[in-house]
């Protein structure tokens, strides 16, 4: 293990390490702690210049209810879920299929198709924006949930296919061969043999895509015009303009907007990190 385990060090070093850890964490999260404290501050504190001291009273309940009362944030959160959940399902489903094709079959063009998915995944959003908006308009889906979801599903399929294909490739191929000898059809092999084995990969992708889509701001701005389809990220930008200096409200709204992906991360931490660090260990 590197660095040398602290347990093998002298007692003072151990104590120093244990003491530095929380201090370092507080400094690291200082901006976040600041915003969290601000979100429970009464507005009078901000008016009288008490920005960093102890809040004069706990106004958390007022602030958070005011956020919901004075804005459409409830709808924005709902919209974010309405975009995020179908996208996760769609992208994971499509990538299971294409990942299977690329991992199990040898055919001409396999690598080309694979690298098309990989390369497409890295292009800047701006090169897609004009044609995608145009296409969505022509399909009559502009400013609709479906329009946004279809694009997200398509784009995320790139990353997900890369992930799924590599995961399936690491499975023992003999499973497929044995099934073929038994005369089992290709679809049944996929459905009954491979899919149950890739559940961890599906979990990892689900949390990752959930976070990516929840946090998407660019497409939310470009593809959603009206409040009834606006996800929380674009909604936050609007609220920031609306509330200007009411930082206790902006802070509370920020905390609300950050909650779902944070909760997802803590619930599915192992899968989340496994997905994110794909490729960081071998190769």
């Amino acid at each position: 293990m590197f660095p040398r385990p602290i347990a093998q060090r002298s007692r003072p070093v151990q104590i120093a390490y244990q003491a530095i850890l929380p201090v370092a964490l507080i400094i690291w999260l200082l901006p976040l702690i600041g915003i969290a404290v601000t979100s429970i501050r009464p507005a009078s504190d901000l008016a009288s210049g008490n920005y960093f001291g102890i809040p004069s009273s706990f106004a958390g309940v007022e602030n958070y209810t005011a956020v919901f009362r004075n804005s459409n944030i409830g709808y924005y959160i709902l919209n974010s879920f309405r975009v995020t959940i179908p996208t996760v399902i769609g992208a994971v489903a499509l990538s299971c299929l294409s990942g299977y094709a690329l991992a199990i079959y040898r055919f001409k063009g396999n690598l080309i198709v694979f690298f098309m998915f990989v390369a497409g995944n890295f292009v800047p959003f701006q090169i897609l924006a004009i044609p995608v908006r145009d296409l969505t308009l022509k399909l009559g889906l502009y400013n609709s949930m479906t329009g946004l979801i279809l694009f997200h599903v398509a784009f995320q399929t790139g990353f997900c296919t890369l992930f799924m294909r590599n995961f399936m490739k690491a499975l023992p191929f003999s499973l497929v061969e044995a099934a073929r000898v038994e005369g089992i059809g290709e679809w049944r092999i996929f459905w009954y043999i491979i899919l149950p084995l890739v559940r961890p990969a599906m979990a990892a992708l689900s949390v990752l895509i959930f976070t990516f889509i929840w946090n998407d701001y660019f497409w939310a701005t470009v593809m959603a015009q009206s409040a009834d389809v606006r996800p929380i990220t674009a909604g936050m930008n609007e609220l920031k303009g609306q509330w200007k200096v009411a930082w206790e409200l902006i802070a509370a709204a920020s905390i609300i907007a950050a909650m779902p992906p944070v909760a997802m991360f803590f619930l599915m931490q192992k899968h989340f990190i496994a997905g994110l660090t794909l490729g960081a260990t071998k190769g």
């Binding site: 299929l97 198709v113 497409g120 044609p131 784009f155």
Partner: peptide, 29 residues
């Protein structure tokens, strides 16, 4: 020809969406 056709059937939905929304728009831009 099952093993020659099957991969393209599995690929069809993903590749269609990706070509339509990602690859083709690059060239359109």
């Amino acid at each position: 020809n099952r093993r020659r056709i099957a991969p393209w059937l599995f690929l069809a939905p993903g590749i269609t969406m990706f070509l339509l929304y990602v690859i083709y728009p690059v060239f359109q831009s």
